[in-house]
Design a protein around this nucleic acid. Sequence first.
DNA 1: AAAGATCACAACCGCTCCTCG
DNA 2: ACGAGGAGCGGTTGTGATCTT
Length: 317
Amino acid sequence: MGRPPCCDKLGVKKGPWTPEEDIILVSYIQEHGPGNWRAVPTNTGLLRCSKSCRLRWTNYLRPGIKLGNFTEQEEKMIIHLQALLGNRWAAIASYLPQRTDNDIKNYWNTHLKKKLKKLQTGHGGHSKEILSTPQPISRGQWERRLQTDIHMARQALCEALSPEKQTCLIDDLKPAPPSSTYASSTENIAKLLKGWMRNGSKKSQTSSITTQNSLTIMAGADSVCSEGTPSPSKPDNSSIDLSDALESFFGFESFGSSNSDLSQSMSPDGSLFQDESKPDFSALVPLSLLEKWLLDDEVAQGKDIPEDATINENNIF
DNA sequence: AAAGATCACAACCGCTCCTCG
DNA sequence: ACGAGGAGCGGTTGTGATCTT
C-alpha cells in the first residue's frame, strides 16, 4: 500500500518504445530469459520501469504473438469466453495463445462491445433490461447458481460444438495455423522494417514500426519462445472437456497446451470469482442473442445449423 | 483541402495476488 | 503468521490514424 509506484522514479522514460529499446530488451531476454523484471532496467540500461519492460515483452515482443485482425473464430470465441468468464482477459487469453490479454481487451472494448450493443438495440429494445444490473441475490445462492450455470453453459457449448458445426466452420473459416500466421505477419514486419530502414530514424518513433521491427528480430529468435511463453501447464480434468471442445470447434492446435485459467475459474469450490466482482450477467443474459447473431452469421453464409446448436437462455439459467 | 470527430491501440496506472524471508 | 517486494491483471488514458463534413 505505502509502496511507491515503480514508475515514479525520476529519469524513467514513458511513451512509445523505440526500435533501439526493443532491440536491447529482446537481446537481454534472449540471453537471460524473461522474468526478474526488476533487474531488467538496471542490467540493460533501459530508462524504463520493470513493469513497462514486462508489458512490452509480453504484449509485443514475445515470439508467437499474432498481430492484426481477429479472425471470425477468434471473435466468436472471445464472445463465448467473455460470457462465461466475464472480463477476465488473462483467462480468456489463455485460450487464445497467440493473442495477449491486452489485445483481446482492446478488441473487446473497441469492436465487440459495440457490435453486441448494436445487436441488442436491434432486438426490440431489450437493451435496457439486458444491461440492467441483476437482482441482488445472496452470495451462496449466487455461487450455487453460477456453478449450475457454468455446468449448463459448458454442456450447451459442447453441444453447440457438435461435429457437424465443427466441420462446416473449419472448412469455411480456416484459421491460419499458428506458425504460418506468425510467418506471414513476420513478412509484413520485414516489409515495414525495410521502410523504416529507408526512412532512417525519422519514422523510428512510431510505435507500429517499433513493434514490427522488433518482431522481425524475434522471427529468428524462436529459441526464446520456450522460455518466453510459460511452459504449458496441464489443464486439470475439470477443464479438459471444454478446452477440447473449443479446440475441436475452432480448430486451434494449441488449446491443449495452453494455460488453463479456466480450470481454476471453474473449480468446484465456488471460487470462480474470488473477489467480489460478479460475473457479467449482462453478457450472460443475452447469450441467445449472441447465439442468434453468431448463427445468423452462419446462415448468411449458407450453413446448416443443427437445431441443438443454440445456447439459449434456458440452458444458461 | 482543411478542420473536427471518431476510432484504434499502445502504454500507463493502481490494485490485488503470490512468494519468500 | 506477518510483512515486503515482485509480478500479474484489468481499467483507463493519450495519441496517432482515419473518416466525415
